[in-house]
Amino acid sequence: MKSIALIPARYASTRFPAKLTADLCGKSVIQRTYLSTVATGIFNQVIVVTDHSEIASHIEELGGTVFFSQKIHESGSDRIAEAAATLDADVVVNVQGDEPFQDKTSLENLLEAFKDPEVQVASLMFSIDTQQAEDPNAVKVVLDKAQNALYFSRAKVPFARDSKVAVNYFKHIGIYAYRKDVLIRFTQLDKSHLEQIEMLEQLRLLENGIPIRMVETTHQAIAVDVPEDLELAKAYFRNYSDKI
């Protein structure tokens, strides 16, 4: 099975302009993401997909591979689909460009899911407590018995109607792996009704009958969304055992 990691890297950002080129202990955020993804050693190829020359130069300085997107895209999924269409791959993993510390075990387990021929899309989740589940920025996922997603929501789901019944809450991590043809088909579908209500593009998959196999991890990724997150990432890096 040939697997490729594609890292969508958009320069513009409303909450933190040019965040991917911000310094993170001697290298930029996008460089850290690229290097930590390569360091897992599990992909046949790692490519940064961008529309901006500054981001491209950061990756080319490392000897990395860049794909320049030619179209205007609304999402990272659309951006990587343009690149994937030109590449020889069985499985494509969408690695978020603003998550600089990728976890080898989590990504290995994500790819492992595709040994099941029924798996078309896989994604990650981790267990959270009741208080964390209250946060609408923490996207929750509920599962069927086969570990496929039933629904994703910003609401606290499942709702505990009977306090005597134990509830497990899982937070979704936005790293996806797709069979190549499914990724391309997904990005050609119209935005779905529930997707527009919750503002969660993965609901488009579910509404169109494309299952998502969920893989549990204990790794909690650091995403650099605002300047304060960058300070957290720097603090983490100083204690990071496998510094890259």
Rank of each mutant, 00 (worst) to 15 (best):
G174T: 08
V119P: 06
S53D: 14
A83K: 03
G64M: 07
D116F: 09
I42C: 11
Y34E: 04
A149G: 06
A221V: 11
Q96S: 15
D23Q: 04
S28E: 02
I47H: 08
D225I: 11
A85I: 03
K145D: 15
Y176V: 02
G63E: 11
Y240H: 10
S3E: 01
E216N: 11
V224P: 04
H219P: 07
E228F: 12
Q220K: 10
L111V: 04
G41I: 03
I244Q: 12
G64A: 08
L124H: 02
A89C: 10
S192I: 00
S77I: 12
V121Y: 02
K27V: 08
F67R: 00
K19G: 08
D78W: 15
A113C: 09
E74L: 13
E74T: 11
S36A: 13
F114K: 00
N208T: 01
N148I: 00
A223G: 14
I59K: 09
Y236Q: 09
I128A: 03
Q70F: 13
P158G: 07
A81H: 06
T33E: 11
P227M: 07
N94S: 14
M199I: 09
D51E: 14
T21R: 05
D135I: 02
S36I: 04
I42E: 13
N109F: 13
E228P: 04
S13K: 01
V91K: 03
A122P: 03
V95W: 10
G209Y: 05
S153L: 01
A85S: 13
V93W: 01
N168A: 15
V182F: 08
T14L: 13
L194I: 04
R15D: 14
I30N: 06
N168S: 15
Q188S: 13
N137S: 13
F43K: 00
E195H: 07
D98V: 04
D181P: 07
T37H: 07
V66G: 11
D135F: 05
G41T: 00
H52M: 08
E61L: 12
V91S: 02
S106A: 12
I173D: 12
K27Q: 10
K180Q: 11
S69L: 12
K171E: 09
V38P: 06
A85D: 05
